[in-house]
């Protein structure tokens, strides 16, 4: 028996909207730790790792570990039927091949339930060890989204270079080149606008713009984004959800042959 109650359906809606274009089907894993998902895109270039911590839910009952295969597009469709301020309850009985989403309006005068078919998915879980990264940048999530979108219109790849002064995003395309430097800056009006650099060594890596743009669909989840890089390692783009957990995207770099 699984029963998870979350007061803000809006959060779950944003989570689904941010991953449904990257991953078609995925297993949601439910354990005492929380409601989590790890899935790669079909080309195995990008990976999404989501954790919604159990203590972030208003009610969290998960009798034993359970994995539920869902089509994320269909799940997003059902969640779109909830209002952002509805309470959502996710329910599944042991051995059932369906999951139920129940939405309750804040005044309790409208209660809806949507039952969705589960699917069997061969999940390929990657073991991702906790790593020390050579460079970590924290910056405005909306600024990062803007940069990825702007550079994506000019070139297919983005070079991200971190020095202790700041982070540089560069691209090159048929029509020309572009460079954006965000200098470290903590003297800001709103703390989410700060750009903070923690760096052991300068790092410069190349990534496909379209994946970075896809990751920025998670921008509504957090004011700041954390970008972690080490030489010849996948980049990690993380959106932390206050009290609830995180959405992390991993992207393998492009290398010179």
């Amino acid at each position: 028996m699984l029963e998870l109650r979350l007061t803000q359906a809006g959060l779950l809606k944003k989570v689904l909207e941010s991953i449904k274009d990257l991953v078609t089907d995925a297993n949601f894993d439910c354990s005492a730790t929380g409601f989590s998902l790890q899935a790669m895109d079909s080309s195995h270039v990008a990976l999404v790792a989501l954790l919604l911590r159990s203590d972030g839910f208003e009610h969290y009952r998960c009798d034993h570990n359970i994995s539920m295969g869902m089509n994320l597009g269909n799940m997003a469709k059902m969640l779109r039927c909830a209002s952002d301020d509805d309470t959502v309850t996710i329910k599944a009985d042991d051995g059932s091949d369906t999951v139920t989403f129940m939405f309750e309006s804040p005044s309790q005068d409208k209660i809806s339930d949507y039952e969705m078919k589960l699917m069997d998915i061969d999940s390929e879980h990657l073991g991702i060890p906790e790593a020390e990264y050579q460079a970590i940048v924290r910056m405005s999530a909306s600024e990062f989204a803007r940069i990825c979108k702007d550079l994506g219109t000019i070139g297919d790849t983005v070079i991200i270079s971190v020095t202790k002064e700041g982070v540089q995003f560069s691209t090159k395309g048929d029509i020309g080149t572009a460079n954006i430097i965000c200098r470290k800056n903590t003297a800001v009006d709103k703390k989410e606008e700060a750009t903070v650099i923690e760096m052991a060594e300068p790092v410069s890596l190349t990534f496909a713009s379209r994946y970075l743009i896809a990751f920025t669909k998670a921008t509504p989840l957090a004011g700041q984004v954390t970008i972690s890089m080490s030489y010849d390692m996948p980049i990690v783009v993380e959106y932390k959800m206050e009290t609830m957990g995180y959405m992390r995207f991993y992207l393998a770099p492009k290398i010179e042959e």
């Binding site: 080309s43 270039v45 073991g127 790849t157 393998a252 492009k254």
Partner: peptide, 14 residues
């Protein structure tokens, strides 16, 4: 020319 690496180049399947 740059080659796109896959995640399996870095991580192993559990």
């Amino acid at each position: 020319l740059k080659t796109q690496l896959r995640l399996e180049a870095f991580y192993t399947f559990n």
